[in-house]
Design a protein around this nucleic acid. Structure first.
Length: 311
RNA sequence: CGCGGGGUAGAGCAGUCGGUAGCUCGUCGGGCUCAUAACCCGGAGGUCGGAGGUUCAAGUCCUCCCCCCGCAA
């Protein structure tokens, strides 16, 4: 029976794992990131681990797979036909890449060679792309540089990271189960990546969420969509942190310093940027739940001229 | 036992030194305007997260529990 070891961590990966399970593959082991303490020290299991537990699949959670000789030896012993990797979050050493006879197959959230790297979906949103997609490829030592086997394009116009991740996760999972048989029977076509067309999506930092109203409104609006899950776009009002979750960039002349409130509406307020204005519809004040701008203004008087700043 | 903020009307908030619980929005009824995120008048709606305790008297002070949020990881 066709044996697959799966490696992945977030929801995006869980979607592919589910597809493999539903397709009936033999999955003796799932490798995912170690359990981490989440908010207020509560243990949070990765979506992939949750799914694996649900189906009674054994899990391994190495701190550093590349240095876990025991696990690597175990993988070798299992002799899987294929290792499928999706947003695993760790680099696979050559010693692992060489184990499966059909190679390590990666589900990557971009149309390679564009947006190689850790956060391709966020990068696609930041760039304002109308279209992105998923590439199934055969992994090699370089970062997302392996030969491409199949691709699917998706419309991501105006979507936030939650939506893009969901769209690409499902498209990728579908593509994965369609592609594996071709890899297995040798009919798959391996296409080299054109390095001259490549780009990289760098890792996201907490500081990337600090909102700078000196940036154009359209850019800030993209960041709000891209960073919604983490770290979120935040600013400070009277020393209190406010995170923005839904906004619209207006192509209007600012009528005040960047960061100042231009106008307040019934269910929104508008902030002046260096270029254009940003209309906020949903936000969260520190210590409070996420709420609509209208709800926020019911309890906090916000008026024209009030200023959001970076502290 | 990581640090901190919070739970009060359908929603968002205020509530001082303990003394019959208030504001904005919504909602319901009535009125007014060419008009507005309108305006005016009136009404309904709360065992103040839960359980004890102190007190003549607890939203408020003390103890324990539940839930939510931010930071740090």
């Amino acid at each position: 029976m066709f044996k697959i070891v799966f490696m992945g961590t977030p929801e995006f990966a869980a979607c592919s794992l589910k597809a493999l399970i539903d397709a009936g593959y033999d999955i003796p082991l799932v490798v995912t990131q170690p359990d981490r303490r989440g908010n207020r020290n509560k243990m949070i299991l990765s979506p992939v681990k949750q799914l694996a537990c649900e189906y009674g699949i054994e899990t391994a959670q190495p701190v550093r797979l590349r240095k876990d000789e025991e696990l690597i030896a175990r993988l070798r012993e299992m002799a899987p036909d294929m290792i499928v990797v999706a947003a695993f979050g760790q680099i696979l050493p050559l010693s692992v890449l060489e184990i499966p006879r059909l190679g390590c197959i990666n589900v990557h959230g971009s149309l390679l060679p564009d947006l190689r790297g850790a956060a391709p979906m966020q990068a696609a949103i930041l760039r304002g792309l109308d279209e992105s997609g998923v590439t199934i490829m055969r992994m090699e030592e370089g970062l997302d540089t392996g030969d491409m086997i199949s691709k699917v394009a998706c419309d991501i116009r105006g979507r936030d990271i939650t939506e893009v991740s969901d769209i690409l996760a499902h498209a990728g999972a579908k593509l994965l189960v369609e592609t594996i048989p071709h890899i297995a029977d040798g009919t798959a076509v391996y296409e080299k990546q054109d390095d001259s067309l490549s780009s990289y999506a760098t890792m996201i930092n907490k500081a990337d969420g600090m909102t700078d109203f000196a940036e154009p409104a359209v850019m800030i609006e993209r960041k709000i969509r891209a960073y919604k899950e983490w770290p979120a776009c935040y600013s400070y009002l009277d020393g209190l942190q406010v995170k923005f979750y839904r906004a619209e960039a207006l192509d209007e002349e600012p009528d005040g310093e960047p960061g100042t409130v231009s106008e307040t509406g019934k269910d929104f307020y508008t902030i002046n940027c260096a270029e254009g204005k940003l209309r906020i519809y949903e936000q969260q004040l520190q210590g409070k739940k996420r709420m609509s701008a209208g709800d926020f203004m019911r309890g906090h008087k916000l008026s024209t001229g009030d200023r959001f700043c970076s502290i």
